[in-house]
Design a protein around this nucleic acid. Structure first.
Lengths: 244, 244
DNA sequence: CGTCAACGTCAATGGCGTTGGCATAAGGAT
DNA sequence: ATCCTTATGCCAACGCCATTGACGTTGACG
């Protein structure tokens, strides 16, 4: 009654801004991602985003309910990238591992956005799709619902958790990262065996590991544990091989 | 030369504020912690902190260089608390699990500080002590150096990663957390089986899990994997029982 | 008792997200 | 081609925020 036609995204009244730009949801999200990459999380403000768009800051509110809404849109965009990069093979362990690495990589591609968004529940299409995919893999592999949910929860939260941690490190100013590296060299590599025998004994193995993400290792250990549980279940059922 | 006497903390010129409070570093930190606990990270502002102290906001700057300096002062205590709460029993798996949970809990007690500091390498005594402790447990349990370092790395980074993730969630404004909860209810609990069969099938198991941390589960899975590796090593050596 | 500086307060600055009002131009209808 | 509707960009303003510099007071010490 009130509105005769709901304006299609393609049929919008695309009135250009003073500087000739035509605003869309996509353009705003992309510009925000670019600002996050170039200037960091603190550098993304409504006013500066408007400036970068060649529009007034308040124009953003015609497309998003607020900066928080825009943040969630950015988050879902990252998960869309993760799913697009993923190619299933039919082997549950291989597929789950690849999906985890894909999510991790998608967030690390935009560390500043990851810090901002990885801990949020958006309920948006791509996030839901990732969840559905994980549960599908686990239940198809033969995990009972209770175990599937438990492993799903640990899996997705671990992926997000490492994404936040690694992204937070990547998002630091270069000077701060170099300072941290020097702190590490100055302390860990030169600790006397008398006070810290175990660090001293393993210093050779520790060197060079500091900047690597521990996520692949933790992911493999989680998947190994899941495989052992599955094998155990099959043995109790007496219906399959214990090799998983 | 310029200053005759560096004022002792006890000998300060304790001029009371308009409302009779006497300011100290400790009082400010404690008040800030209380505000964090009661009103969340967004509820801690210089103005409101000043109000809670019965002083002007600018008085804080006589004690800290800025809000960031105050945040780091708060964070300084966290790892110390984690180690202080930890009581070893001599069983490597039990002790490692308790230490992980203790670190996690210490950070979660101050989510705002955790988000800022958990991804940093401080090289300060308590951090080094935690690392030494973990390596000691693993090497004493019988892990070869290479495996001990690998598991140490996965273990500590997993603990920090979940701390950052869970703290980031806790640090959100209360209104945002409630909104996220409602988003979850509105989407996941009502997804049709036609489009998302696996989420729909496990909805009963998913309910109530949303606010729980997945860290204990992920931690147990990591420790299970480590125990299996240890058992495998002992079998190859032919020198011990495979029960870990 | 005088001097000095530590410290609380005030006022102001420049930033932030967000909102309501207003002008205008893009579509649809005629 | 013209009118009407309304989506949309822009402007000004509000109430926050952290931070700073000047100012006055007051406690401690010589």
């Amino acid at each position: 009654m009130a509105k005769r036609v709901v304006p299609d995204a393609a049929r919008r009244r695309r009135r250009p801004t003073r500087q000739g730009q035509v605003l869309t949801h996509e353009l705003i999200v992309e510009t925000a991602l670019r600002m996050l990459r170039e200037h960091g999380a603190a550098g993304l403000t409504a006013r500066r985003l408007g400036l970068a768009l060649g529009a007034d800051a308040s124009a953003i509110y015609r497309y998003f309910r607020g900066m928080d809404d825009l943040t969630l849109a950015i988050a879902d965009e990252l998960l869309a990238h993760a799913l697009a990069d993923w190619r299933p093979t039919g082997h549950w362990r291989t597929d789950l591992r690849a999906l985890g690495l894909s999510v991790h990589a998608a967030y690390l591609a935009h560390p500043q956005a990851a810090v901002l968004t990885a801990s949020r529940v958006t309920g948006r299409p791509h996030e839901v799709a990732v969840d559905e995919t994980i549960l599908a893999i686990l239940r198809t592999a033969g995990f009972p619902d209770h175990d599937a949910v438990r492993i799903y929860h640990a899996f997705i939260d671990q992926s997000l958790a490492f994404a936040v941690l690694d992204a937070a490190s990547l998002a630091l100013p270069a000077a701060t990262r170099q300072a941290d590296e020097q702190v590490w060299q100055a302390t860990y590599a030169r600790l006397p065996a008398s006070s810290h025998p175990h660090i001293a004994a393993t210093a050779g193995h520790l060197v060079g590991r500091m900047n690597d993400s521990a996520y692949p290792t933790a992911l493999d250990m989680l998947l190994d544990s899941a495989r052992a549980q599955l094998a155990d279940l099959r043995v109790r059922d007496g219906s399959g091989s214990p090799r998983g």
